[in-house]
Amino acid sequence: MDLKSLKKQESKRKISKGYMWALFCAVFWGIWYLPGTVVWVLNPFDEMYSAIAETGGDGTALIITAVLITAFNALTVMLALMLWNGVLGKYKELGRTLKEFHPCSKWFFLASIFGGPMAILGSFIAMGFIGGAFAAVAALLYPVVGSILAYYWYGEKISKRAAIGIGVIIVGGITIFGGGLLTELSSGNVQWIGYLGGLMAAAGWGIEGAIAGKGLDISEPDVGLTLRFLGENIIWWIIVVPVLALLGYPMYSFALQAFEPMTMLVLIFAGITFGFCYVCWYKSFPLIGVGRGQGIGNLYGLFAIIFIFLFFGDVPEWSIIVGGTLCVIGSFVMFTEDTSALETLRGE
């Protein structure tokens, strides 16, 4: 075969593989909202919620319960990623990367602060207060946060096309948040904490992406992601959970009760889907470019709505469907720029 047709074949193979990874990411990410929503009504989390609500009020109870759920989510994601790295034979590389704290792994630990206590906790709060479909679609705003940060932080240019995409996503965001708020304002019962959770998810993932990218540039993504979740586990199990326990919340007694078959099954399901959605996301980038990878990855919002409809029979509000569609369209507009132009932008 000649050079030209081989080049064509190679790029075809790369592109189809890349789209496959990105699509897997969207499916896994979308499915994650199923266990994320179900876990709220399972023992011990429902009991924990009512036990704390009796003395501390609904808002506190929800946040404390969300902390424990997020902590377990981080733990099962870590297990899934350790298994994945074992299969790939990357434990040695994991050790080598962990040791490079200053140039590399510090970025993962920093990213985990925004990814964990902000984005994932916010997502669980939004799922608990408002619902899975809202939580999924609200987080679609993350690219806006990410690109604005990159603009101020490393002076990355925002092209006209990207600006149009950001505009469409913001209109989508206003629809998602505004639609739900209007209905609730008229009924006089606004779940402010849930909406705050949605914003935390969007802002947290935007910031996480901007920071983690600095470390992921120069490390293997399978390894980098594992370190990012190592950071999150440290935050929850060594810092936050013990502090809350010292403050008198029954963290450990309920945490021990989580080792029930059904609860564990749902938590492990959450860990596998979430862990692999991250892995697939990063695998797609070198093959089809970060832009298209993120654009297709963002289809998760629509997948989440479809899965939630199929499994729970919940038909989401029109504002969530319209707003979610706008966000996905916006991310396609924003991300599907000519990649060759993007590469040179970054190289200089």
Partner: peptide, 22 residues
Amino acid sequence: SINFDIIELASGGMLKDVEQKV
């Protein structure tokens, strides 16, 4: 797996693919 690391570095804009041959 090492070759994929090189591809990732190139897609991150740190390396440039300057020539190909069969």
